[in-house]
Nucleic acid binder design. Structure first.
Length: 212
DNA sequence: CGCCAGGGCCATA
DNA sequence: TATGGCCATGGC
């Protein structure tokens, strides 16, 4: 396949800078990362709106399980996710709650801590690192997995293999990681999801055109 | 009506 | 390590 940077440049030239993780605060990014697990983003927006602008780790811990479940109900899996939200909130506050202090520590350490939290797996951990803490940890999601089935990776296709491949093939830069992830999602939504709609795809000439 | 969306946990082999 | 069942809502 082509150099990863080449693919990135092509996508960037075609779609431009996509900023698709809208959030008022870093904590809202964390909440969104939990709520969006296997869930449409429109449902996450509904759930976040139901916090009524009062969204903090303290608030989440103060709410009863039932109250929290009722607020996030539109995001689905609300019984599990209410526990997950309380777990990340406890982690955050147990370390002082200062996002800047937290993010100033070694990335691998933060990632390991995140993975130790109930409800935080690889993708959620990387989303929090990249979009909430602004640290260079590449996010691999369902779109990314499908994407690299079109451009097979020699190393393999497990989560960590795809992640390592992307990080090795791009400058270690938060903006680039964020943009590339957004570009992959946008391209995947428009082209290789339900049907093979190659016309108009900026990568049509490079793609293996493998049925997904 | 059925499908599935920006996963993760847990039990089982 | 690798499947498979489970969790739940809203949009199409």
């Amino acid at each position: 396949m082509q150099k990863l940077e080449t693919i990135y440049e092509i996508l960037l030239a075609h779609y431009g800078d996509l900023e698709w993780w809208p959030a008022e605060t870093a904590f809202e990014v964390i909440v969104g990362a939990i709520l969006t697990q296997n869930t449409a983003w429109t449902n996450v927006e509904k759930a976040i709106a139901r916090f009524g602008g009062d969204l903090s780790a303290e608030r989440i811990l103060a709410l009863s399980p039932e109250e929290l479940q009722e607020i996030i109900r539109p995001a689905g899996f609300f019984r599990q996710k209410s526990q997950y939200l309380k777990a990340v909130s406890e982690w955050l506050l147990s370390l002082g709650g200062d996002m800047d202090m937290l993010s100033s520590r070694p990335l691998p350490q933060i990632r390991a801590e995140l993975l130790g939290i109930r409800g935080v797996g690889n993708e959620t951990a990387d989303s929090i690192l990249l979009y909430a803490f602004q640290l260079p940890s590449f996010v691999v999601d369902a779109y990314t997995m499908r994407f690299f089935r079109r451009f097979p990776i020699p190393a393999g296709e497990t989560y960590m293999e795809v992640k390592a491949f992307c990080e090795a093939g791009l400058p270690r830069d938060v903006e680039i990681y964020q943009h590339f992830h957004a570009l992959i999602v946008q391209n995947g939504k428009e082209h290789c999801r339900k049907q093979m709609s190659c016309p108009g795809c900026p990568l049509a000439e490079l793609c293996l055109k493998t049925a997904l």
